[in-house]
Write a protein that binds this DNA or RNA. Structure first.
Length: 245
DNA sequence: GCGTGCTTAACAGCAGAACC
DNA sequence: GGTTCTGCTGTTAAGCACGC
């Protein structure tokens, strides 16, 4: 579903009204006539559509991020997937004040890059990497990855953010990223490695063990790239579930 | 103009959950 | 093992459409 199929961004329009509009055969902005709902509501929807068309032309993801209820943020994905930045971090622990970020992988426009602590992981490089990322896509990133990065580096990641943990919950998938990947059939090169191993691998790298860093980076990149498959699958399933199109 | 029914918005409180 | 955002539920208020 694209944002042009949505009417829920209008003030005074909720789930039931939108469903009713779809059931009348109006499933796209192009098909909308104010008469399908009547009165001021119709005028407001028309205003939302007119404004929305301009905002899409400007790639203004933030406008729709604010307009849609947070539970419907997943609808941004199909329209703005080209501007999506999937990312995942590895750290030395859970405490953002005591532990450090070891690697950050970003997958955007088909390319994946990894920044590594002690090498190229700097605030400046992070800002450059996130420049142009209009829609962040993570798994539990709202509570972990973003706060961790903002606490450890002078970066501002306050922008539209699709946290797939909640999107997956809506379609009955829970249990952590690895579990969810398994549930939808995503295969891994190294299924035996976990987040705890990421801490161990970093320590081994610091102690000079050959191959430890390569394994850690590979794990981090796989986590990141898999987010794209997860986003595609989750949004498709939600689309099938709610959209009368 | 009035009453009714439907719908949304706003708010509070609570529990669940996953990150490394 | 610390953190905290989100969804869920229930409640209340208000706006709107519609029929009379």
């Amino acid at each position: 579903m694209r944002v042009e199929n949505s009417f829920i961004g209008t003030d005074g329009v909720g789930e039931k009204t939108e469903q009713s509009i779809w059931e009348q055969g109006v499933t796209h902005w192009d098909e909308f006539e104010p008469s399908v709902v009547g009165g001021q509501r119709g005028d407001r929807i028309q205003q939302f559509i007119d404004e929305g068309r301009d905002r899409i032309a400007e790639t203004d993801v933030t406008y729709f991020d604010h307009a849609f209820p947070s539970s419907e943020r997943w609808r941004l994905y199909e329209t703005f997937r080209e501007r999506a930045c999937f990312f995942d971090i590895e750290t030395t622990g859970l405490d953002q004040d005591r532990n450090q970020v070891t690697t950050v992988s970003l997958h955007q426009g088909g390319d994946t890059q990894t920044l590594i602590a002690g090498d190229d992981l700097t605030a400046e490089n992070l800002r450059a990497a996130f420049d142009g990322a209009d829609l962040l896509v993570t798994f539990n990133g709202k509570r972990f990855d973003v706060p961790f990065l903002e606490a450890n580096f002078d970066v501002d990641l306050d922008r539209p953010h699709l946290d797939l943990m909640y999107t997956c919950k809506k379609i009955g998938l829970s249990g952590g990223l690895k579990q969810v990947e398994q549930d939808i059939g995503i295969e891994r090169d190294r299924p035996d490695i976990s987040g705890r191993d990421a801490v161990r691998l970093w320590r081994e790298h610091e102690q000079g063990r050959d191959g430890a860093l390569e394994t850690l980076v590979s794990y981090n990149r796989e986590d990141t790239v898999n987010l794209k498959t997860l986003a595609e699958t989750a949004t498709e399933r939600l689309d099938e579930r709610i959209f009368v199109g």
